[in-house]
Amino acid sequence: MFEALLGNGLILKKIIESIKELVTEVNFEVTSEAISLQAMDASHVALVVLVLRASEFEEYRCDRPQTLGVSITNLAKLLKIAGNDDSIILRAEDEAHVLTLVFTGKNNEKMCEFNLNLLTLDSEHLGIPEQEYSAEVTMSSSEFSRICRELTQVTDTLNLSVDKESVKFAVSGDIGTGSITMKANNSDKSEEKLILNVSDTVSMAFALRYLNLFNKASSLSDEVVLSLSPEVPVVLKFAFDLGELKYFLAPKIAE
C-alpha cells in the first residue's frame, strides 16, 4: 500500500504543469523515502528529475517500493479538476493497476475521487554522476524566465557566458544581435539578486525552446540555480519545500 497526503495540492498541480509539455508518460518510483521520477523528452536532449520527500507530506506511507507508470497528459487532466486550495491524496495498492487521486476541499465540503489507469512503461534511466560544475548561477527564477522569453523573439539559441563577475545572455539572429549582462550582487530585491560561484569561465549555447519549457517551474520556486560546465548538459534546479525539480539540457554544439 502506498498513500500520500499533500495538504497543499496546488504544488502538485504546478509540478505536473511544469513537466507535461516535456514528458508524456513516466514511471514514478515510490519508496518509503520519496516519490521520484526521471524521464527524458522524446528527442532525448532534455531530462526531468523530480524528487518529493516523504517527510514533507502531511501523511505518507509506502509499505513496499513500487513503480507507477503514469500518463502525465491524463494526470494533468485530472489535476485540473482539483481546486487550488484542495488537499490531494495519492493512493495505490501493492502491484497497482490504478493510481487513486482524492481531492478534498478546504472545509471538507467536497470530495472528488478518480482512478487513473496505470501504464507499463520501459524505463530508460540515465546514470548521472555527481559532478563539480565550473559555474553556478543563482538568480530570480522569474527574471531568468523573462530574459529567456524576451530573447526568444530574436532567435532560438541562447549563448550563456559566466565569469567570476557576471553572467551574459547573448543572442544573434536575422534581425541583429544583442545581450543582457547581469553582475553578481546581493540586492535586497529578489528579482535583482545574482549569486555566482565560478571556478572557471564558461560559455555555452542552449535551445531557448527548452529553457522556456523548464521555466514553467518558476511558479514553484523564487530562485533557479543554473549549473554549467563545458560540454556537459546544463542543470536548472528549482527547489521548494516538498522537494526539487531539476532539468538537464544538452548543449548546442557548432557544426
Partner: peptide
C-alpha cells in the same frame, strides 16, 4: 547550422 547531442552521449543508460 547547429545541432544538439542526445543525453545518452553524456550519461550512461542504466
Amino acid at each position: 547550422g547547429k545541432y544538439q547531442e542526445v543525453l545518452s552521449k553524456f550519461y550512461y543508460v542504466g
